[in-house]
Write a protein that binds this DNA or RNA. Structure first.
Length: 171
DNA sequence: AGACTAACGTAATCAATGT
DNA sequence: ACATTGATTACGTTAGTCT
């Protein structure tokens, strides 16, 4: 993606989160959990997060990246396989799909804060997201997801030219 | 300099919730 | 029933770390 255009006072890409560096013990533990279950639910992720002292959202991303890596190496850890195995073979119950994160409910006032920020910048960096997290009381990781979904579903009506923003939201 | 990989992006889809 | 929208998936890209 090519945001962060030229020098001429254009919008610069905001900084991303500082990259964490995993120590060997953390890598080993992650690896071990991955082998047991490459698709951990929120409960397992939380427990693992606590165990190795890494925030749960980082754990979730690590599993996403690691699945890609494994797949690239020819190893096939695919979700469907995992699910159907659980269904056709209920005895191997360990393969059953684990519960995901409970849906976060976002209030009207929180949404208005987020929408305002979105109209200023559709691609907030970590600093902006943390600030919004503070203002709204929502976890930063949920804010990041909110922006992803928003970009996908409300394409630029602040970017470039306002496409008559009042036409929206018939409430 | 190049390999590795956390962080981050899109697109598609599932699923909870409200109307 | 349907629309809206939060969460998860696959997969590609960007950029920091390490050898």
């Amino acid at each position: 993606m090519d945001l962060a255009k030229s020098s001429n006072g254009s919008l610069e890409r905001e900084a991303r989160r500082k990259r964490i560096v995993l120590n060997q013990h953390q890598k080993d533990t992650l690896q071990a959990w991955f082998e047991k279950n490459p698709y951990p639910g929120i409960a397992a992720r939380d427990q693992l997060a606590k165990e190795i002292g890494i925030p749960e959202p980082r754990i979730q991303v690590w599993f996403q990246n690691h699945r890609s890596r494994q797949r690239r190496l020819g190893l096939k850890c695919c979700f469907e396989e995992y699910q159907t195995q659980g269904q056709t073979n209920p005895q191997f119950g360990t393969q059953a799909k684990e519960a995901g994160r409970i849906r976060t409910s976002i209030t009207r006032s929180q949404i208005s804060i987020l929408v305002q920020a979105f109209e200023k910048n559709q691609f907030p960096g970590i600093a902006t997201r943390e600030e919004l997290a503070k203002q709204t009381g929502l976890p930063e990781s949920r804010i990041q997801i909110w922006f992803q979904n928003r970009r996908a579903r409300h394409p630029d009506w602040s970017r470039g030219g306002p496409v008559n923003s009042l036409a929206a939201c018939p409430s």
